[in-house]
Measured scan of single mutants.
Amino acid sequence: MIINNLKLIREKKKISQSELAALLEVSRQTINGIEKNKYNPSLQLALKIAYYLNTPLEDIFQWQ
């Protein structure tokens, strides 16, 4: 199972779901689904999230 800290990191950086979704060219619902662990992002999307949040990938997504 993958645990993610996306919501915590996104809120710490004061970025809304809508703003992050626009940067990543995905829907706000996609961001919401990832934050709620409804599904895991593709590797490409995970890397883009880490890039736009300027945060190491392993700080956002962790195996458990």
Rank of each mutant, 00 (worst) to 15 (best):
M1V: 09
M1F: 08
M1K: 06
M1A: 06
M1H: 07
M1E: 05
M1G: 05
M1R: 05
I2G: 05
I2H: 08
I2N: 06
I2D: 05
I2L: 12
I2C: 08
I3F: 11
I3W: 08
I3H: 07
I3N: 07
I3G: 06
N4Q: 04
N4C: 05
N4D: 02
N4T: 03
N5K: 07
L6Y: 00
L6G: 01
L6Q: 03
L6H: 01
K7T: 10
K7S: 09
K7Y: 06
K7E: 11
K7I: 05
L8N: 12
L8I: 15
L8R: 14
L8G: 09
I9H: 07
I9E: 05
I9D: 01
I9P: 00
I9S: 04
I9R: 04
I9G: 02
R10I: 03
R10P: 01
E11N: 10
E11T: 13
E11R: 11
E11F: 07
K12G: 12
K12E: 13
K12Y: 14
K12S: 14
K12R: 14
K12P: 02
K13G: 05
K13A: 13
K13C: 08
K13V: 09
K14E: 10
K14I: 05
K14F: 10
I15A: 03
I15C: 05
I15L: 11
I15Y: 09
I15S: 03
I15G: 01
I15W: 06
I15P: 00
S16I: 04
S16V: 04
S16F: 04
S16C: 05
S16R: 08
Q17P: 06
Q17N: 04
S18Q: 14
S18T: 13
E19I: 08
E19F: 09
E19N: 10
E19Y: 11
E19L: 09
E19V: 10
E19W: 07
L20Y: 01
L20F: 07
L20H: 00
L20C: 02
L20K: 00
A21Q: 02
A21K: 02
A21G: 07
A21C: 05
A21R: 03
A22Y: 10
A22V: 10
A22R: 14
A22E: 14
A22L: 13
A22K: 12
A22I: 11
A22C: 08
A22P: 02
L23F: 13
L23C: 08
L23M: 15
L23G: 11
L24A: 09
L24P: 00
L24C: 09
L24H: 01
L24S: 07
E25C: 11
E25S: 12
E25I: 07
E25G: 13
E25D: 13
V26F: 02
V26S: 04
V26M: 05
V26A: 04
S27A: 07
S27F: 03
S27D: 13
S27G: 08
R28T: 15
R28E: 15
R28P: 14
R28L: 15
R28S: 13
R28Q: 15
Q29V: 12
Q29F: 11
Q29H: 14
Q29T: 14
T30V: 15
T30A: 08
T30Q: 09
T30I: 13
T30G: 03
T30H: 09
I31D: 00
I31T: 01
I31P: 00
I31W: 02
I31F: 03
I31A: 02
N32E: 15
N32L: 13
N32R: 15
G33W: 13
G33M: 15
G33Y: 13
G33R: 15
G33P: 01
I34S: 00
I34L: 07
I34P: 00
I34H: 01
E35H: 02
E35L: 02
E35F: 02
E35Q: 02
E35M: 02
E35G: 00
E35N: 01
K36H: 15
K36E: 15
K36Q: 15
K36G: 12
K36M: 15
K36C: 09
K36R: 13
K36Y: 08
N37A: 07
N37I: 03
N37T: 05
N37S: 11
N37G: 14
K38N: 12
K38H: 15
K38Q: 15
K38D: 11
K38E: 15
K38Y: 13
Y39P: 03
Y39R: 10
Y39K: 11
N40Q: 10
N40V: 15
N40W: 09
N40Y: 13
P41G: 02
P41S: 03
P41H: 02
P41D: 01
P41W: 03
S42Q: 05
S42N: 10
S42G: 09
L43V: 10
L43E: 07
L43Q: 09
Q44K: 12
Q44A: 15
Q44H: 14
Q44P: 12
L45F: 10
L45D: 03
L45K: 02
L45N: 03
L45A: 03
A46V: 05
A46S: 06
A46Q: 06
A46T: 04
A46L: 05
L47V: 14
L47C: 10
L47S: 10
L47H: 11
K48P: 01
K48G: 07
K48S: 08
I49Y: 01
A50V: 05
A50M: 04
A50C: 06
A50P: 00
A50I: 03
Y51E: 09
Y51I: 08
Y51W: 12
Y51A: 10
Y51Q: 12
Y52W: 11
Y52Q: 09
Y52L: 11
Y52P: 00
Y52I: 14
Y52F: 14
Y52S: 07
L53P: 00
L53G: 00
L53I: 04
L53C: 03
L53V: 04
L53D: 00
L53W: 03
N54I: 05
N54G: 10
N54E: 13
N54W: 06
T55N: 04
T55W: 05
T55R: 05
T55I: 07
P56C: 05
P56V: 05
P56M: 05
L57A: 04
L57I: 12
L57T: 04
L57W: 05
L57S: 04
E58D: 14
E58L: 10
E58C: 09
E58Q: 13
E58F: 09
E58M: 08
E58Y: 11
D59L: 12
D59K: 11
D59Y: 10
D59R: 09
I60P: 01
I60G: 01
I60S: 01
I60A: 02
I60D: 00
I60M: 06
I60R: 00
I60K: 00
I60C: 03
F61Y: 03
Q62S: 10
Q62A: 10
W63T: 04
W63Y: 06
W63I: 05
W63Q: 04
W63D: 03
W63L: 05
W63F: 08
W63V: 05
Q64S: 13
Q64D: 14
Q64M: 11
Q64L: 07
